[in-house]
Amino acid sequence: MHSLIFGLPDVFAPGVATALVLTALRVGGLLLVAPAWSAKSVPMRLRAALIVLFAVLLLPAALESADRSGLAITPATFLAETVVGFALGFAAALVVAGVEFAGELATNTIGLSGAAIFDPLGNTQGALFASFLQLLAVTLLLLAGGHLLMIEAVAKSFTVMPLGGPLALDRGFLPLVKAGAQLFASGLQFAAPVIAAILLTNLALAVLGRAAPQLQVMSLAFPLQIGVGLLTFAGSIGLVVQALGGWTTPYHQTLDSFARAAQVAPAPAMGASR
Results as ranks from 00 to 15, higher is better:
residue 146 G to K: 05
residue 198 I to P: 02
residue 249 T to K: 11
residue 240 V to P: 03
residue 30 L to M: 14
residue 43 P to N: 08
residue 124 T to N: 10
residue 50 L to V: 09
residue 210 R to D: 11
residue 124 T to L: 09
residue 236 S to G: 04
residue 78 F to A: 09
residue 210 R to N: 10
residue 123 N to H: 06
residue 79 L to Q: 04
residue 201 T to Y: 10
residue 101 F to C: 01
residue 39 A to N: 13
residue 120 P to A: 07
residue 88 L to Q: 06
residue 16 V to F: 03
residue 257 S to D: 15
residue 95 V to G: 06
residue 73 I to C: 05
residue 162 P to R: 00
residue 217 V to M: 14
residue 236 S to I: 13
residue 33 V to R: 02
residue 106 A to P: 10
residue 48 A to D: 01
residue 83 V to E: 07
residue 130 A to Q: 15
residue 166 P to I: 14
residue 188 L to A: 14
residue 271 G to R: 03
residue 196 A to S: 11
residue 190 F to G: 02
residue 96 V to A: 13
residue 129 F to P: 10
residue 267 A to R: 12
residue 97 A to Y: 01
residue 93 A to S: 14
residue 235 G to Y: 00
residue 36 A to E: 14
residue 46 L to M: 10
residue 84 V to T: 15
residue 76 A to R: 07
residue 267 A to C: 12
residue 200 L to M: 12
residue 141 L to H: 00
residue 7 G to Y: 02
residue 156 K to C: 02
residue 56 V to E: 02
residue 216 Q to H: 11
residue 64 E to L: 12
residue 130 A to L: 08
residue 22 L to S: 05
residue 35 P to Y: 01
residue 7 G to H: 02
residue 136 L to P: 09
residue 86 F to S: 07
residue 106 A to T: 14
residue 114 G to P: 02
residue 218 M to C: 00
residue 8 L to K: 06
residue 84 V to W: 03
residue 79 L to V: 15
residue 60 P to T: 04
residue 131 S to A: 13
residue 104 E to V: 13
residue 115 A to N: 09
residue 178 K to V: 15
residue 125 Q to E: 13
residue 222 F to Q: 13
residue 61 A to T: 05
residue 273 S to Y: 03
residue 90 F to M: 13
residue 247 W to H: 07
residue 118 F to P: 04
residue 216 Q to N: 15
residue 9 P to F: 03
residue 244 L to C: 05
residue 241 V to F: 03
residue 180 G to V: 14
residue 263 Q to L: 14
residue 86 F to E: 08
residue 238 G to R: 01
residue 217 V to D: 08
residue 51 I to N: 07
residue 166 P to T: 09
residue 67 D to I: 08
residue 172 G to N: 08
residue 101 F to P: 00
residue 233 F to G: 01
residue 221 A to P: 04
residue 112 L to R: 08
residue 266 P to E: 13
residue 250 P to M: 10
residue 82 T to R: 05
residue 188 L to S: 12
